[in-house]
Each structure stands twice: as structure tokens, then as C-alpha cells.
Amino acid sequence: MPTPNTPLWEVFIRSRNGLSHRHAGSLHAADATLALQAARDLYTRRGEGLSLWVVPSNAIIASDPADKEMMFEPTASKIYRHPTFYDIPDEVGHM
């Protein structure tokens, strides 16, 4: 249960060198140190990670769902942004 004493944190894990940290989930913790330990205990039990970030959830600036049409819909008509207009030689295989 969320309480003022244990704010929400977002957890990011880098699974391998060379990859970026990816969002894994969230947790409640009293402070940054305990948040990092809780992230280790909750999200890396099966060898998922080499590096952990925890970020206070309230530090994340999120887009407003109400702005969805303005923000994201215009891209739907711009199919030329997808790299699908090239003939790929067979020798290349999967890109």
C-alpha cells in the first residue's frame, strides 16, 4: 500500500553490456538506498541484470493521454518514415 513514507520508484535493468537499461517495473521504498536493494531483490532474482537504476517515479515527466491525438496520430499517415520501400538483396538475409 502506498504511504508517504515509502514513495514509488521506477526500476531499470541493463541485462547485458552494450544494451540500454530497460524499464522493469516499480516498487515502494523509503529512500534511494533501500530502493536499489529492493530492486535487486524483486527484479534480479533470475540473473536478469548487470546494472540497476532506480528513479523516483515523481521525477518522470509523462505525456498527457489527452494529448494523444496531437502527439502521436500524425505519424500514422507518414508511412514513408518506415524503411519498407527498399528492395533488399537476398544475400543480405534478415536485417
Partner: peptide, 8 residues
């Protein structure tokens, strides 16, 4: 007391 500590 909390889920996080239960796992720890």
C-alpha cells in the same frame, strides 16, 4: 511488513 521486504 511490505512486499519488497517479503522478497528480501
Amino acid at each position: 511488513p511490505i512486499l519488497e521486504e517479503e522478497m528480501a
